[in-house]
């Protein structure tokens, strides 16, 4: 009895972990593309936020969640392009550009949201086709009753929303693109030693723009997931620092796709725990305050960045604008 109860809790926690880690995975891979090409992207947060807003708006008015995703991607790519222009064409400080875009996103979403819907920045709730629904994988109901495997397949692996599966597919895809294609070779070269690409007669800037825009697409999907899958409308500051946590996960993963997946699942698990068990009782002696469990993902981010994980060496040229030497 006790055991099955615990097991059900575990299934519930794992299911939530998967749901919550999707945003982190997509954002983390976005950061991976960008930083592997030498552009530091602290603006993952802002891109996701603006994408979440416009995807909610588009989904609401069109009644179609996929149109919402496209709108989110478009909004996020616009921000990515601004970041690209600032840091590639005008050799600006990439940190400052990212921070500015984050502020711009938190301001714009509320200003526009208020002007259009007058609900304190919220967008109207999404229902029906405007939201993604859960996809039941084949045989889910059939094997549900099998011990362990059954619930794991039926409730954790099956029954997720489309973007969840997409996110988990993007991980191997990212690996393949980076390490098996010409595009990936050049992208990594640009992040390590842009001069090597430049002397080969290939545009460093074009390669970097491509990477930044891919980051825009992935953040767009992440933001759309927040507003149309995880929640059912846009709410102000709904990204809640996940863009920064994704960056910490990226460092933790040492800029490698599969490690990034693991790191994001870990953070997702943490968030799931703090959502499911806000008041953890320690042997009935005292209960951990809810504020602490809420702050737990942030605290762990700091702990991980403190480098109790070995040394993380970023791509050599990351953060440096490329200027031909004289």
């Amino acid at each position: 009895m006790e055991l099955t109860e615990t097991f059900l809790q575990l299934i519930l926690t794992l299911d939530m972990t998967v749901r919550l880690s999707v945003v982190l995975i997509l954002a983390c891979l976005a950061g991976l593309f960008s930083e592997r090409a030498g552009i530091v992207d602290i603006g993952l947060e802002g891109k996701m936020l603006i994408a979440a807003f416009f995807s909610a708006v588009a989904a609401y008015h069109s009644g179609n969640a996929w149109i919402g995703v496209l709108a989110g991607i478009a909004a996020s790519m616009t921000f990515a392009l601004i970041h690209g222009i600032a840091s590639i064409a005008y050799r600006g400080n990439q940190l400052i550009s990212g921070v500015a875009l984050n502020f711009l996103a938190s301001g714009l979403t509320v200003v526009i949201g208020n002007a259009w819907y007058k609900e304190g920045g919220r967008t109207p709730p999404l229902a029906g086709e405007a939201r993604f629904s859960e996809i039941t994988l084949p045989f889910a109901d059939l094997i549900r009753d099998l011990p362990v495997i059954g619930p794991l397949y039926a409730d954790v692996i099956s029954g997720q929303k489309a973007i969840v599966y997409l996110a988990f597919l993007v991980v191997p895809l990212t690996w393949w693109v980076l390490f098996r294609t010409r595009f990936g070779l050049r992208l990594r070269a640009v992040g390590e030693n842009p001069a090597s690409v430049d002397t080969a007669g290939i545009s460093v800037n074009r390669q970097r723009y491509a990477a930044v825009l891919i980051a825009g697409v992935l953040c767009g999907i992440a933001g759309a997931y927040l507003a149309t899958s995880q929640a059912a409308s846009f709410g102000r500051e709904m990204t809640a620092g996940r863009g920064y946590i994704a960056l910490a996960a990226l460092i933790f993963a040492k800029w490698r796709p599969f490690y990034a997946l693991m790191a994001c699942l870990l953070f997702g698990l943490l968030e799931a725990i703090s959502n499911l068990y806000p008041n953890i009782d320690v042997f009935g002696i005292f209960s951990i305050p809810v504020q602490f469990t809420q702050a737990l993902p942030y605290i762990l981010t700091v702990v991980i960045l403190a480098g109790f994980i070995g040394k993380a060496i970023p791509p050599k040229a990351s953060g440096e604008p490329y200027i031909k030497e004289r």
Binding site: Y90, G92, Q94, I96, S97, A100, L104, G107, V111, N114
Partner: peptide
Amino acid sequence: PAISREMVLVIQALIILFTGALDNM
């Protein structure tokens, strides 16, 4: 009333963007 107080945040973000990141423009 159509404008909310976050407008200030927008202006501030744009100032950071133009003075900080797009300075070379």
